[in-house]
Design a protein around this nucleic acid. Sequence first.
DNA 1: TAAAACAAAATTGCACACAATGAAATTTAC
DNA 2: GTAAATTTCATTGTGTGCAATTTTGTTTTA
Lengths: 144, 144
Amino acid sequence: MEDKYPGLKLGNQLCFPLYACSREIVKKYKPFLDELDLTYTQYITMMVLWEKEQINVKELGECLYLDSGTLTPLLKKLETKGWVTRRRAREDERVLIVSLTEEGRKLRDRAAVVPEKMSCCVKLSPEEARTLYTLLYKMLGECC
Amino acid sequence: MEDKYPGLKLGNQLCFPLYACSREIVKKYKPFLDELDLTYTQYITMMVLWEKEQINVKELGECLYLDSGTLTPLLKKLETKGWVTRRRAREDERVLIVSLTEEGRKLRDRAAVVPEKMSCCVKLSPEEARTLYTLLYKMLGECC
DNA sequence: TAAAACAAAATTGCACACAATGAAATTTAC
DNA sequence: GTAAATTTCATTGTGTGCAATTTTGTTTTA
């Protein structure tokens, strides 16, 4: 009776610790990101822009595994804060190009401490972290 | 210039693939859970109840890493669907006890196929899956 | 070349998550 | 014995996520 459906036990799920862990880590980021007036999703969006300077919504969505339903309002907020600009591509008016502003670039310097601060809260060895990283990207690449 | 802050590159983050992977897998569940009229969060809640038959909100929140702000409306929905009942504990009126109904128990039989169906979409070897599972619980336990 | 097909964002609606606050019951400290 | 602190759940407000649809623009095709 107890184990009629072992696959339905929370402790036998791979997805559940993934889901819980993801949320717990994002929560850990909050105090550091609050200081920058960024949410986690806004943070990873800025991360893409710090690397690429400008990108369109479609490509950004592919980078972050997010769609326009999430990105459109988020990018408007980042625009309001003055960190990005949004404009249509001249050669194809359907495409919206998001660009980093000078203010957005400055934010990067302030954000530089976040990864260090976070690193002390991940208690895995460098090797374990690398293994985890590899397995996650394997799942992300092959299954999703 | 390019690598002024390597810690701020998306590709150097451990959190990002965790976050993306979690959402992608939950998305994979959707078609199967739709057939049961369950969301993913409702599904893991029912999973706890299928194991324990009854539990109070506080303990449920500890199991799932969720708080009452998420659970209260979710449990009301599960009650509306007829799968759980909600009542206060007589010995301590602050405590709300959630119990599985007969209908909720029946749902378990229909849900039994979900883990099988999902397993074909995780492309990790059993050993890799076990490693991932262990590392995730290590993070969840020690860091969060 | 006009209509149909396609593509990219935006919009809408629903369901979380979660911080912050509130309300009610219980426990603790004096 | 009661005021203060604590505990438990509910409520509120903000910000995602995402499916489905709409709008606008571009490309293809008959």
